[in-house]
Design a protein around this nucleic acid. Structure first.
Length: 974
RNA sequence: GGGCGCAUAGCUCAGUGGUAGAGCACUGUGUUCACACCGCAGGGGUCGCAGGUUCAAACCCUGCUGCGCCCACCA
C-alpha cells in the first residue's frame, strides 16, 4: 500500500498501468472454461489517427469488454487495421510528390510503389494503435491483424474464387461511378451529391428531313458529342410528330433516331432528352430498353475525363469543362443555342477526391449482392442478428431490398490483386482452323492454378484443331490492360500447350471486400474453417472440399489463449456485439452479414449496436475545414483518458448524435478527482483494500444501508449493460459514488471512526467502507479503468491482483436491508429538512440549536436516538435534555410523523417562518387534493391498476397528515 | 419523390400511461481535520402546436409546424 497523492494527476499513471496490463497479458486472461464474449473492432484505416468518433466507438467497446471480463467471461476484443485502398494510396502518393525527388507511382512502377506503401505501413501504421492504447482500449494485441496479412489474402482469394464458381461474382461492362482524379471506379456509396447552381442549356437538333428542329435541354452539353438518340415521352402529344424521324447531331454530323421512353417527363425542360448511353445512368437504361433503335454507345472520355479520340478532332484532349464551353460556343455559332436557364441540380462528387464523378463505361467485377442479401435479410428478420436501436433495421432492410450489383474492382495498386488471369480465346471452326474470339478468364487461387486451367483450355482446343497442334510458337507479349483485340488475326497466331500468354487482372479489390470478411478471417478462416458446402442451386457450384484441397490443409489450429482443441473460429464465431456508427451500415455491416452467412453459414454477430455521430457543441458536424474538430488526445492530455471516456459513455444515449462540450469532460474530470479524494480520505482513516469480494458482516444501520446501496447499484449497472444503455450506466455509478457514498456514507460514518467511538463499530465500518470502495472501483472500472486500477493498488491490492481481472459484484448475493434503508432515509430527510429551514430563516450554519419533538412513535424514537450523533453533526441540533421550555417561538421541521421544534436563539423572523410553513402546507394540501380528486374520479378505483390505487391512497394519507401537522405548526406560531 | 429521427428547465439531455428529472450554468451561503476540480441551500418547465383515445397523456393515435439525417435523383 502506498499513499495516495494529494493531487489527482492522471498523466502520472495512465501509461504505466497500460503497459502493466499489456505486459501481464491481462487483456486476454486464460479462461478456457468461461463463456466467450467477443467483439471485433471496426478496423481503423492504417493511415488514420484517432479522432473523436474513434474515441466514442472504442470507449463503448472497451466498456463492454471490460465489464464482461470482470463478469468472468473469456472476453476477447479482436483488433487490427484496414489497408484502406484509396486512402492509403493517396497518402503515399502525396508523400512521393512532396518528397525531394518528387516522383510519382507511375514513374516508380507498380512493384516498387507497393513496396513503398508497405514501408510506409511498417513505419507509420502504428500511430492509431498506439492512440487506442492511450484511450485505454483493452484489445487483444497479441493477435493484431491487418487486412493485407498473408492469411487475409488467402481468405480474400478463396472468397473470390468460390463466389465466381458459384456464379455470384462476374465480370460485366456497364456504367460505373468513375473518379477521374484517381482514375478508378468507386462505389455508389462513395459518391456524395452536392447541390450546384448550374444551367439548363436548350439546343436545337435539325431534323433529317429538313422539316425543322427538335429542341433538347441538358445540363451537360459536352456529352452531346456522344448522343445516340433523342427521346420523348410516348404520351406527349406535342412530341408525337417527331417520333420515328431522325435528326442530325450537330458538330458530329451523325444521324440519330428519335424514340419514345416513359422516363422522359413531358413538362420538364424542352420535353425531349438527349440519350448519351456511355455517360448517364438513366440514358444507359434507355439504351438497354431499346435494342431495336441501335443506339450507339460512345465513350467520349479518357480515364482522366479529358475528351477521347471518339470525339471530333477539335475536341480531343480538352478537359470536360473546356469541351462544355466549346460545345456551347459552337452551337451558338451555328444558331442552334435556344436559351440558357439557371438550374439547381445535384452533381455527384467523389467523397475522397472531391472531383465530379463521371458515369463511365468500363469492364468491372461485380458481386451479385441481391442474391447474398436474401439470407442476410432473413437473419435479421428472424432475430439472429439484432440491431440496437432497432430503428436501424429499417435502414438495413431498405437498402438490402434495393441493393445493386456491387462493383468490387478498383483501378488502384494498393489492395488485394484480383485472382483472375486472362488469355486469348478461340473458337474452333473446323479441324484445321480456329477463329479469334476475344478473351477468356481463368479465376483461380494462384497463378499456377490459372496456368493449369489455361493448359486444359488450350490443350482441349489443340485436340480439336490441328493448327494448334502443329504451328510454330509465337508468344504474344503480356499486356497490362485492354489488349488491342481488333488487330489480332487468329489465323496467324499459334499456341502450343504450355507456351501461351496469360496475364493477371491488374486491378485490386474494393477495400470493403476484405473488410467484409473481418469477423471470420481474423479468427483464422479459411485455415481453421469448418467446411460449408457450396450453396445448392447456384450455377457452376464447385464443391468446397475441392476448393479446400487447393488451399492450405484444413485442421484445427490451436487457440492462442488456452490451448483447447476448439479452433478460434468455432469458439469465437459468431461474435457477440458489433459496435459501430450507423454511417457504415451499408459499407460494412451489411456486407459482413452477407459474407458471414455465405461462408460461415452463420451471422457474424448477435447484436449490432449503432451509435451516433459526435458533433461539436453547437451540433455542427466536425470537419477539418470548419476547424471545429476536437482532438481526443488533447482532451486526454488535459483531463485524462478516464474523464473523456466517462463523458462519451454518459452522453451515449441510444442512437442520438452527441454534441460534445468540453465542459462535460471537465465535469467528469471533477468526478474523478472526487473519487480520488474520497479514496485518499479512506486511506488516511485506516481503511484499506478488502481481502475478499464477499460482503462483510455488518450490524450498524449505516453499514447495512451502504451494502444494500452497492447491491442496488450493481443491479442498475447490470441492467444498463444488458440494454446497451451506456448513459444509464454512467448515471447510476456517478450518482452512487457522489451522492450516496461521498455525500452521505462517508459523512455519516465519520463520527463512527472518530476518537472515542466504539471500537467494534469502528472496525466494522472500516471493513465495510473498504469493501464498498473496492466495489465502486470494480463497477467504475469499465468506464474509468486507469483511475480505478491506480486506486485499487494504492489501497493495498498486491501486484498479482489487478483490478482489470477482479470480480464483478453479484447483486443477488449481496443482502439488501429494508429496515436499514428506512432508517437512513429517515435521518437523511431530517437533516435535509433542518438544513433547508435554517437556510430559509437565515440562521447561521454555525449556530448549534436544541430541539424537542412531538408526535413520535416508537420507531421514530428508535431512529432518533440511534442517530443522535449524526443529527447533531449534520443538522446541528441536539435534544434539549431537561432544559425547560421557555415558551418562545420555535422553528418547526416535520419529518414523517415527527415535528421537531427547534429553539432558536434571539428573535426569529415570524413572518418568514409563517410564510415558509404556509407554503409547505399549501403544497401538501394541493397534492392531497389532487390525489383525492383522482381517488374520487369515476373509474379510477375500478379501472386503474391496484398498485396505482393503493399508492394513491397511501400518498393521499401521508400528504394529508403532513398538511395537518404543518397547519398545527402554524397554529402554534399564533 | 420515398423513408427515418428529433422538438422536455438558460444549455446538453434522461424520462415513455399514474403528482416533471440529471449534469452544467445561475442565485445565496460557507460551521465541518478527503475534496473550492468542494460543501450546503435555492430559483427555474402550461414537456413544439391542435385534435383524439383513456379514469388518467410529456408518454399512445391523427394532423400541423420547425429542425436534422438517409435513400432516390427531371435530362
Amino acid at each position: 500500500m502506498t499513499l495516495i497523492d494529494k493531487t489527482f494527476a492522471p498523466a502520472d499513471f495512465e501509461q504505466r498501468l497500460y503497459e502493466r496490463w499489456e505486459k501481464a497479458g491481462q487483456f486476454r486472461p486464460a479462461r478456457p472454461d468461461a463463456q466467450p464474449f467477443t467483439i471485433v473492432i471496426p478496423p481503423p484505416n492504417v493511415t488514420g489517427s484517432l479522432h473523436i468518433g474513434h474515441a466514442l466507438d472504442n470507449t463503448l467497446q472497451d466498456v463492454l469488454i471490460r465489464y464482461h471480463r470482470l463478469k468472468g467471461r473469456d472476453a476477447r476484443w479482436i483488433v487490427g487495421t484496414d489497408h484502406a485502398g484509396i486512402a492509403t494510396q493517396m497518402v503515399v502518393e502525396r508523400q512521393l510528390a512532396e518528397s525531394t525527388q518528387g516522383t510519382t507511382r507511375q514513374a516508380m512502377g507498380r512493384d516498387a510503389f507497393v513496396e513503398t506503401v508497405w514501408d510506409w505501413k511498417r513505419t507509420s501504421g502504428a500511430t492509431i494503435t498506439q492512440q487506442l492504447r492511450r484511450l485505454g482500449a483493452s484489445c487483444d494485441w497479441e493477435n493484431e491483424q491487418f487486412t493485407m496479412d498473408p492469411h487475409f489474402t488467402k481468405a480474400v482469394t478463396r472468397v473470390f474464387v468460390q463466389l465466381y464458381n458459384e456464379g455470384l461474382l462476374y465480370r460485366d461492362k456497364r456504367l460505373v461511378n468513375w473518379d477521374p482524379k484517381f482514375k478508378t471506379a468507386i462505389s455508389d456509396l462513395e459518391v456524395e451529391y452536392r447541390e450546384i447552381d448550374g444551367h439548363l442549356w436548350h439546343f436545337r437538333y435539325p431534323l433529317e428531313d429538313g422539316s425543322g428542329f427538335i429542341a433538347i435541354a441538358t445540363t451537360r452539353p459536352e456529352t452531346i458529342l456522344g448522343d445516340g438518340a433523342v427521346a420523348v415521352n410516348p404520351d406527349d402529344p406535342k412530341m408525337a410528330h417527331y417520333v420515328g424521324k431522325r435528326c442530325r447531331l450537330p458538330l458530329t454530323d451523325r444521324l440519330i433516331p428519335i424514340i419514345t421512353d416513359p422516363y422522359v417527363e413531358a413538362d420538364f425542360g424542352s420535353g425531349a432528352v438527349k440519350i448519351t448511353a456511355a455517360h448517364d445512368f438513366n440514358d444507359f437504361e434507355v439504351y438497354k430498353r431499346h435494342p431495336e433503335a441501335n443506339i450507339p454507345v460512345i465513350n467520349l472520355m479518357n480515364p482522366d475525363a479529358t475528351m477521347s479520340d471518339a470525339c471530333p478532332p477539335e475536341y480531343r484532349g480538352l478537359t470536360r469543362e473546356a469541351a462544355r464551353l466549346k460545345v456551347i460556343a459552337d452551337f451558338d455559332a451555328l444558331g442552334l443555342l435556344d436559351k440558357v436557364e439557371p438550374h439547381k441540380h445535384q452533381v455527384p462528387y467523389g467523397d475522397r477526391s472531391g472531383v465530379v464523378i463521371e458515369p463511365y463505361l468500363t469492364d468491372q467485377w461485380y458481386v451479385n449482392a441481391a442474391e447474398l442479401a436474401k439470407p442476410a435479410m432473413a437473419a435479421v428478420r428472424e432475430g439472429k442478428t439484432e440491431f440496437v436501436p432497432k430503428t436501424w433495421e429499417k435502414t438495413y432492410f431498405n437498402w438490402m431490398e434495393n441493393i445493386q450489383p456491387w462493383c468490387v474492382s478498383r483501378q488502384l495498386w494498393w489492395g488485394h490483386r484480383i485472382p483472375a488471369w486472362y488469355g486469348y480465346a478461340f473458337e474452333v471452326t473446323s479441324p484445321t482452323s480456329a477463329r479469334f474470339a476475344g478473351q477468356i478468364v481463368f479465376v483461380e487461387a494462384s497463378e499456377i492454378e490459372a496456368r493449369e486451367a489455361a493448359e486444359r483450355y488450350y490443350g482441349n482446343l489443340a485436340t480439336r484443331c490441328s493448327i494448334f497442334r502443329n504451328a510454330e510458337i509465337e508468344t504474344i507479349p503480356q499486356q497490362e490492360r485492354e489488349p488491342n483485340w481488333a488487330e489480332l488475326d487468329a489465323e496467324d497466331e499459334a499456341f502450343e500447350r504450355g507456351n501461351f500468354p496469360i496475364w493477371q487482372d491488374p486491378d485490386v479489390l474494393d477495400t470493403w471486400f476484405s473488410s467484409a470478411l473481418w469477423p471470420f478471417a481474423t479468427l483464422g478462416w479459411p485455415d481453421d474453417q469448418p467446411v460449408i458446402p457450396a450453396k445448392a442451386g447456384t450455377q457452376g457450384a464447385v464443391a468446397t472440399a475441392d476448393l479446400a484441397a487447393k488451399g492450405a490443409p484444413l485442421g484445427s489450429r490451436e487457440s492462442g489463449n488456452d490451448g483447447t482443441k476448439a479452433t478460434d473460429l468455432v469458439r469465437y464465431y459468431p461474435t457477440d456485439v458489433l459496435v459501430t456508427g450507423f454511417d457504415i451500415i451499408f459499407f460494412w455491416v451489411a456486407r459482413m452479414m452477407m459474407q458471414g452467412l455465405h461462408f460461415m453459414d452463420e451471422v457474424p454477430f448477435k447484436t449490432v449496436y449503432c451509435h451516433g455521430l459526435v458533433r461539436d457543441k453547437n451540433g455542427a458536424k466536425m470537419s477539418k475545414s470548419k476547424g471545429n474538430t476536437v482532438d481526443p488526445l488533447v482532451l486526454i492530455d488535459q483531463y485524462g483518458a478516464d474523464a473523456l471516456r466517462f463523458t462519451l459513455t454518459a452522453m451515449e444515449s441510444q442512437g442520438r448524435d452527441i454534441k460534445l462540450d468540453e465542459k462535460r469532460v471537465e465535469g467528469y474530470r471533477n468526478f474523478a478527482t472526487k473519487l480520488w479524494n474520497a479514496a485518499r480520505f479512506c486511506q488516511s482513516n485506516g481503511i484499506s483494500a478488502s481481502t475478499s469480494p464477499d460482503t462483510p458482516a455488518a450490524n450498524h444501520a449505516v453499514n447495512r444501508w451502504i451494502i444494500g446501496e452497492v447491491a442496488a447499484t450493481a443491479r442498475a449497472l447490470d441492467a444498463a449493460i444488458a440494454a446497451f444503455r451506456f448513459d444509464a450506466y454512467a448515471e447510476a455509478i456517478y450518482q452512487f459514488v457522489w451522492n450516496r457514498f461521498c455525500d452521505w456514507y462517508l459523512e455519516l460514518t465519520k463520527p463512527l471512526l472518530s476518537e472515542g467511538a466504539d471500537a467494534g463499530v469502528a472496525a466494522e465500518t472500516r471493513l465495510v467502507t473498504g469493501w464498498a470502495l473496492d466495489r465502486i472501483l470494480v463497477m467504475l472500472h469499465p468506464v474509468m479503468p486507469f483511475l480505478t486500477e491506480e486506486l485499487w493498488h494504492k489501497l493495498g491490492h498486491g501486484d498479482g491482483d489487478d483490478l482489470i481481472v477482479a470480480v464483478w459484484p453479484d447483486a443477488g448475493a449481496i443482502p439488501s436491508d429494508a429496515a436499514a434503508s428506512d432508517e437512513i432515509d429517515w435521518v437523511i430527510q431530517l437533516v435535509e429538512g433542518v438544513r433547508t429551514a435554517r437556510t430559509e430563516l437565515g440562521i447561521p450554519p454555525s449556530a448549534k440549536l436544541t430541539y424537542d419533538v412531538e408526535g413520535e412513535d416508537p420507531q421514530d424514537t428508535k431512529y432518533r436516538l440511534a442517530n443522535t450523533a449524526a443529527i447533531s453533526k449534520f443538522a446541528r441540533i441536539s435534544p434539549t435534555e431537561g432544559i425547560a421550555d421557555d415558551g418562545g417561538v420555535k422553528l418547526q421541521v416535520i419529518n414523517g410523523n415527527v415535528t421537531f421544534k427547534i429553539n432558536v436563539e434571539g428573535v426569529i423572523d415570524l413572518a418568514a417562518e409563517r410564510a415558509r410553513l404556509t407554503k409547505s402546507a399549501e403544497a401538501a394540501e394541493k397534492e392531497a387534493a389532487s390525489l383525492a380528486g383522482r381517488l374520487n374520479s369515476p373509474g379510477f378505483v375500478e379501472k386503474a391498476k391496484p398498485e396505482a390505487v393503493e399508492k394513491a391512497r397511501d400518498d393521499h394519507a401521508a400528504r394529508s397528515a403532513e398538511a395537518a401537522r404543518l397547519r398545527a405548526a402554524l397554529a402554534r406560531l399564533g
